[in-house]
Amino acid sequence: MDRFSSVDRRQFLKTAGAGAALAATTPGLLLGEETKPATDAKAPESLVKHLYDSMNEKQKKELCLPWDHTDSRGLLRTRVQNNWHITAPVINSDYFTSDQKHLIRKIFEGIVSEEWIERFDRQLKDDAGGFGNDQNIAIFGKPGEEKYELVMTGRHMTVRCDGDSAEHVAFGGPIFYGHAAKGFNEKPEHPNNVFWHQAVAANNVYKMLDGKQQDQALLKTAPFEEDVQFQGPDGKFLGIKVADLSSDQKEGVQNVLQTLIAPYRQSDRDEVVACLKKNGGLDECRLAFFKEGDIGDDKVWDIWRLEGPTFVWHYRGSPHVHCWVNVADSPDVATNTG
């Protein structure tokens, strides 16, 4: 159940752009010029309403659920997993009309960055035979009349289009992405993996650390990848605190953040910025690397984690890439990792 009914998320979106503009001068936030006021928040949401209106009664019964629908494992709308099907019908099937398939595709294109559409298509081709071949959707709430959110799931993907409804969270809730570009067990350099450059950016920061800092940042064993619940300001975070880094090292962490959020639409990036700002920025986060899963024993760490009071980005690059993401502006937001 939504635990923050008193907060108007539409106002949150309006202020997110302003927060992004202030980010460069706000201590501890460390954001660059890429983050700008959101301009694209409503386009994919309006398509969700068109999709909903086009559905017959059978489709609505099977794909459309109440906002607070639960099952034996909790609130279904907020679930995130690495490979799951939120409903049974596959997008590329006769269950959907050609117009509905087109709308679903346009919704997907609207919630990711235009520059990343080709790369997501490459990932989906490698992992699932192409867009829609292994993916499913569900719509929670009633578009146009109340809170609503479309959730799309499948192998190596959980993404959301939340209709300005899911309060206090970025991306409409926790998301997942991954890629197995050349089979289940990838080589150290992760050839053709569309997300490996994110790990390269993080490892570049590790190289900037002195010996004492590296000892603090590098641990033997990683936490469970799906462990992305928020710890709050009193949490016990792993690794080295960003606030303790030098200015050039902090700039490197800022580059990591920008690299992580770049695949998604601007309004979602702005929400990440606003959520971080409310909880002390990147200065309140820690960056950790893990010796386990070092493919090829090359000391280019395949598993790493950036975490703060209400921010978790867990990158597991062994044996292929899995990334679990959870960002909010309050630690009281519940997460369902299924």
Rank of each mutant, 00 (worst) to 15 (best):
K278T: 09
A262E: 12
Q11M: 14
E284S: 15
A21L: 15
N255I: 07
L219C: 03
M1P: 14
I240C: 13
L276W: 08
E146W: 06
K182F: 02
P223E: 08
K236Q: 12
D210A: 00
N193V: 00
L287M: 14
E114Q: 11
V151L: 06
E251D: 12
P37N: 09
A38Q: 12
I139T: 11
R286W: 14
L76F: 02
F12K: 11
Y264Q: 03
V159T: 13
P188N: 05
N203L: 01
Q11R: 15
W301Y: 15
T221S: 07
T259Y: 06
A181M: 01
R305M: 04
K58H: 08
L22W: 09
H69G: 02
G308V: 03
D215T: 07
G293A: 04
L22V: 09
Q213N: 06
L75P: 02
T25I: 15
F120T: 01
F131M: 02
E292T: 03
L75R: 03
T335D: 02
H179C: 00
K14P: 04
E109D: 14
F237C: 06
L306E: 06
W324S: 00
V333L: 06
L124F: 15
L238T: 07
D329L: 01
S165W: 10
V333N: 07
I295V: 15
Q214R: 08
A180Y: 04
L276G: 06
Y177W: 09
C64Y: 05
S247M: 11
G173V: 00
N92I: 04
I104Q: 11
